[in-house]
Design a protein around this nucleic acid. Structure first.
Length: 493
RNA sequence: GGGUCGUUAACUCAGCUGGUAGAGUAUCUGACUUUUAAUCAGAGAGUCGCGCGUUCGAGCCGCGCACGACCCA
C-alpha cells in the first residue's frame, strides 16, 4: 500500500527512536502561557546581546519553521497563530538529555518552549530555551522555504499545508473572518436580528438555479439544499420580525469557475417599511466602512485595477447604463421590436418566450457589466427578469430593484419586495411555465409562501450580497477558491 | 462544451535535434555554542500525471485519458 519515499521513512524511524528513548511524540500536557505576539513588545527595551533584566520565564508553543543547527547549539524559527519568534537552544542550558532529544526534532514539529528572553548580537529577539516539550511529531516534510507552495491545486487540496507555509493565505482567511464579523456588527447596530432558516427545503425557491437533491429517510421525502433563503426570511417579515438577516451557505448544482463554487456564502437581509433606495444607502455605507476598517483605505487595487469605494457611488437605471455606457440610441430602448432586433444583431440568442426585458438584460450583461469598475448601482430592472421584485408604481414594466457592480462583477442584488400574493402567484406560475423542459429548476410552486403572503407581509426591501465575491474584492483574490477554505475540486484520482 | 498552456525528487524548477535524469531547498552522515536563505565536506533520494502508438531507442514525437490554470461559450 504505502509508497514510502525515503524522507517519510527517515522521519518515521526518527520518531520511533525518540519514542524508544521515552519521549512522548504527542504529549498533551504543555499549556503555553504566552503567545508570540505578547512577547514581541517585551523585547523593545532590550539592547543587542542583552538578556531581559528580570529573570522572567515565558512559555510558547508552535511549529518549527526553520532550523539552524550547530554542534552544541541551535536556532529555530517558531511560529504560532500570532507570529514567529526565534528560539535558541544551547546544550549547557538545556542539559544533555534534552539536547539529545532535540537533535531528533524536525522542521514541521510542533513544540513547547519555556525560556528567557534575550537579544542576539544583531538584535533579534529570541527565547533561550530552558525546557522543551515535543507536542506533535511531524512525519511529512514541509514545502521549500524560499518559494513555499506555489502549485494552486495543492494549495486548494491541502489547505492545511497552504496555511502553514503561505502567510498571504492566512491573511486572506483572517480578513474573511473580520469582514463577516464587521457585517454582523453593522447590521446589529441597525437593529437587524440574525436568524437561521432551513438549509434543506421541500421546495427550493428564491432564485433560479439547479438545486442539489437529497432524501429524508424517516419522512421518505425529497428535500433540496437551498439555493437561497429568501422565501423563509420573508415569512419572518410576515411573522413580525421587521429586520432580519442571515449569513449562510447556498448550494447550486452548477458549474465551477473562478467565480462559482457549488456552495457559497450569502448574506441576505430584509427590512420592513423600507424601499430599495434605503438599501442603496445602507449598502454603500456598510461596504465602504468595512473596506476602510479592513484595508485602512477606500482606494483599493483589484488584480491591478484601481477601485475607489468612497461614497457616494454611481447610480444608473438600466436604460441609462445602456445609453451612457454601451452607447445605445435612446430611441431603440423605447421600441421593444428594435431592442429585440439589436440583441439578435449582437449575437444574443433569446428563447421563444423572451421579451424586450430579457433582451435588455442580456445586452446589459454583454455590453455594460464588465465596464462598471467603480461601484455602480444599476436600477429599474425589467419586471420580466425580476420574479420576486415589486413593480414600479409609475412604470410597471420595471421593478424597484438594483444590482451593485464592482470591478465588472455583480456583488449585490436588492429590491423592494413584492408583497401582493395575487401578483406573486401569477409570477410563480409564469416562472414554472417558463422553466421549459428543465425540471431540475423549480419543481413546484411554493404554495405555503403564497399562504404566508395572504396573511399580509409588510412593505419591505431585501438584499443579497455574495460574501465570497466581497471577500475576493477586499482581499484582491483572483479566484473564489482563494477565499473558500476548502473549495470543491474534482477527485484527485 | 471548445481552445491554449501546464503536470519531471517532499517543495521550487531546468532538461538541447529523440541517445543511461539535473540543480537549489528539504533529508541523511561528519565538523561547528549568537545563526538569520548559517557555513564547510560528503551521501541518498525519480512510476518524468496515466495509457497506447511511432522508433533500434521516448521526459522529449503522435493519439487518447485524468487533473489543474487561463481564455471563450
Amino acid at each position: 500500500m504505502s509508497q514510502d519515499n525515503q524522507t517519510l521513512k527517515q522521519r518515521r524511524e526518527k520518531a520511533e527512536s525518540l519514542e524508544a528513548a521515552g519521549t512522548n511524540l504527542y504529549s498533551n500536557n504543555f499549556k503555553p502561557a504566552n503567545t508570540v505576539q505578547e512577547l514581541l513588545p517585551k523585547g523593545e527595551f532590550l539592547e543587542a546581546q542583552e538578556t531581559e533584566p528580570r529573570t522572567n520565564s515565558y512559555s510558547v508553543a508552535g511549529r518549527i519553521m526553520a532550523m539552524r543547527k550547530f554542534g552544541k547549539a541551535a536556532f529555530c524559527q517558531l511560529s504560532d497563530q500570532t507570529g514567529h519568534i526565534q528560539i535558541y537552544l544551547k546544550k549547557d542550558k538545556l542539559g544533555d538529555q534534552a539536547f539529545e532529544a532535540f537533535k531528533k526534532w524536525d522542521i514541521g514539529d510542533i513544540v513547547g518552549i519555556i525560556g528567557t528572553l534575550f537579544k542576539t548580537k544583531v538584535g533579534e529577539l529570541s527565547i533561550a530555551a530552558t525546557e522543551t516539550t515535543l507536542i506533535s511529531k511531524s512525519l511529512r516534510p514541509l514545502p521549500e522555504k524560499w518559494h513555499g507552495l506555489t502549485d494552486v491545486e495543492t494549495r486548494y487540496r491541502q489547505r492545511y499545508v497552504d496555511l502553514i507555509v503561505t502567510p498571504e493565505s492566512r491573511e486572506t482567511f483572517k480578513k474573511r473572518v473580520e469582514i463577516i464579523k464587521l457585517i454582523r456588527e453593522y447590521l446589529s447596530s441597525k437593529d437587524f436580528m440574525e436568524v437561521e432558516t432551513p438549509m434543506m427545503q421541500p421546495v427550493p425557491g428564491g432564485a433560479t438555479a439547479k438545486p442539489f437533491k437529497t432524501h429524508h429517510n424517516a419522512l421518505d421525502m425529497e428535500l433540496y439544499l437551498r439555493i437561497a433563503p429568501e422565501l423563509y426570511l420573508k415569512r419572518l417579515l410576515v411573522g413580525g420580525f421587521e429586520r432580519v438577516f442571515e449569513i449562510n451557505r447556498n448550494f447550486r448544482n452548477e458549474g465551477l469557475s473562478t467565480r462559482h463554487n457549488p456552495e457559497f456564502t450569502m448574506l441576505e437581509f430584509y427590512q420592513a417599511y423600507a424601499t430599495y433606495e434605503d438599501l442603496i444607502d445602507l449598502t454603500e455605507e456598510m461596504i465602504s466602512s468595512i473596506c476602510q476598517k479592513v484595508n485602512g483605505t477606500m482606494n483599493i487595487s483589484y488584480q491591478g485595477t484601481e477601485v475607489n469605494l468612497s461614497p457616494p457611488w454611481k447610480r444608473l437605471s438600466m436604460d441609462q447604463a445602456l445609453i451612457e455606457v454601451a452607447g445605445i440610441d435612446e430611441a431603440i430602448l423605447h421600441d421593444d421590436q428594435k431592442v429585440m432586433a439589436l440583441a439578435k444583431e449582437k449575437g444574443i440568442q433569446l428563447d421563444k418566450l423572451a421579451g424586450s426585458g430579457k433582451a435588455k438584460t442580456e445586452l446589459f450583461e454583454l455590453l455594460v457589466e464588465e465596464k462598471l469598475i467603480d461601484p455602480t448601482f444599476i436600477t429599474s430592472y425589467p419586471t420580466e427578469v425580476s420574479p420576486l421584485a415589486r413593480r414600479n408604481d409609475e412604470d410597471p414594466t420595471v421593478t424597484d430593484r438594483f444590482e451593485l457592480f464592482i470591478t465588472g462583477r455583480e456583488l449585490a442584488n436588492a429590491f423592494s419586495e413584492l408583497n401582493d400574493p395575487r401578483d406573486q402567484l401569477q409570477r410563480f406560475e409564469k416562472q414554472i411555465a417558463d422553466r421549459g423542459d428543465d425540471e431540475e429548476i423549480h419543481p413546484e410552486l411554493d404554495s405555503d409562501y403564497i399562504r404566508a403572503l395572504e396573511y399580509g407581509m409588510p412593505s419591505a426591501a431585501g438584499e443579497g450580497i455574495g460574501i465570497d465575491r466581497l471577500v475576493m474584492l477586499l482581499t484582491d483574490a483572483p479566484s473564489i477558491r482563494d477565499v473558500i477554505l476548502f473549495p470543491h475540486l474534482k477527485p484527485e484520482n
